[in-house]
């Protein structure tokens, strides 16, 4: 007991996922060209204690969704480990070996319109994991459980008879959550769960997710491009850029003392909704093509502090304060770290 409490529920170690994006063999032979490997994720490590939320944040194409899909086993890993309660589930080769773990980690997807089979009734969608894992048997027991789940996500049990298209985006995301909860999981991977939703609906879903975490003791891996949402939801944050984790820190620390120049830049892009009139640093450049990343630090072409070392040597994550930062500049102390946001006012 004490051992499982001390050990994080989820440990991701040196996770990498490469995609072969080269043309088919025949075309390569005829037209020339060589194999092209997209390193979507290259050596990402983090761990999540039970009952906590770890957030991955970054722009599109940075590999955060790929990490999510690797963690739940949708993609095999090219390298690294995905350890769940001390067991490396990424090394399991058969579906049977994986089976006991399937029930315990579930996923919530970004697009509530694509993640529910349009031809199934909501009741059957939610009951699918219960039937697949034979958690309950008998129609009545399953129906009762589905009613309970629908109530848990603040829907009406009668909604179970309807089809997904009869619901709004926010309600569909509730159905998605109910399905994910159906097998009593301990760990939920949430891939941009609210980015397709309107703000008022987003608030409903974020509140619901927080309530569920508190009531059921869930552990979240929360993927988002929205820093404000990440700030609101997470205990610890990892910032990804071009397939690498550039900074990892407790949420409070990261938003107060962003260290990596990319993290600093990301924080600068948040619109100033409080209208404090703060001056934003102009953001320069765009994310390079991930198939052909720059040598050295992937951020060096956009970084104001880049020098020759940054252009040749890939930085490794080093501890800096409470954070882990992969930046030569931070290590050498040539990147200034400025306190950003005043600490949240105690209510």
């Amino acid at each position: 007991m004490s051992e499982t409490a001390a050990r994080p529920l989820v440990e991701v170690q040196d996770l990498a996922r490469y995609f072969d994006v080269s043309k088919p063999l025949l075309n390569r032979l005829l037209e020339g060209g060589k194999r092209q490997i997209l390193r979507a994720v290259d050596g990402v490590s983090f761990d999540i204690p039970r009952g906590r939320t770890f957030a991955l944040v970054g722009e599109s194409g940075c590999g955060k969704s790929t990490v999510a899909r690797c963690v739940v086993g949708l993609y095999p890993l090219s390298r690294g480990k995905m350890i769940f309660e001390g067991v490396d589930i990424a090394s399991m080769r058969t579906r049977e070996a994986m089976r006991p773990f399937r029930r315990r980690l579930q996923m919530i997807f970004q697009d509530p319109y694509a993640s529910l089979n349009p031809r199934w009734r909501v009741r059957d969608i939610i009951a699918e994991p219960i039937r697949a894992h034979a958690i309950l048997s008998g129609r009545e027991a399953i129906d009762a459980r589905v009613d309970e789940l629908l109530t848990q996500v603040k829907l009406n049990p009668r909604d179970g008879e309807k089809y997904p298209h009869e619901f709004s985006g926010g309600q569909r995301q509730r159905i998605s959550i109910a399905r994910a909860l159906a097998s009593n999981p301990e760990f939920l991977v949430c891939d941009e769960p609210t980015s397709a939703l309107d703000v008022s609906v987003q608030a409903q879903i974020l509140n619901l997710m927080k309530d569920l975490q508190r009531d059921l003791g869930l552990t979240y891996l929360f993927i988002s491009h929205n820093l404000a949402v990440v700030h609101h939801m997470s205990d610890e944050v990892g910032v990804m850029y071009l397939g690498r984790l550039v900074e990892r820190a407790p949420s409070k620390e990261l938003f107060r003392f962003p260290r990596h120049p990319y993290t600093q830049m990301l924080l600068d892009t948040i619109p100033d909704i409080d209208m404090t009139g703060r001056q934003r640093q102009p953001v320069a450049g765009e994310v390079p093509n991930p198939i052909d990343p720059p040598p050295g630090c992937p951020f060096n072409p956009r970084c104001a502090f880049a020098n020759d070392r940054c252009r040749t040597e890939v930085p490794v994550a080093k501890r800096a304060g409470e954070a882990l930062v992969a930046c030569h500049g931070i290590e050498e102390g040539r990147v200034p770290v400025i306190e950003r946001v005043p600490a949240p006012v105690a209510a």
């Binding site: 703000v199 008022s200 608030a203 909704i273 946001v341």
Partner: peptide, 17 residues
């Protein structure tokens, strides 16, 4: 109230039912 913002607390967001 529904918009999460950095610099605000992380308590529950205002919710329009």
């Amino acid at each position: 109230g529904a918009i999460p913002a950095i610099g605000h607390g992380t308590e529950r967001l205002t919710q329009i039912e």
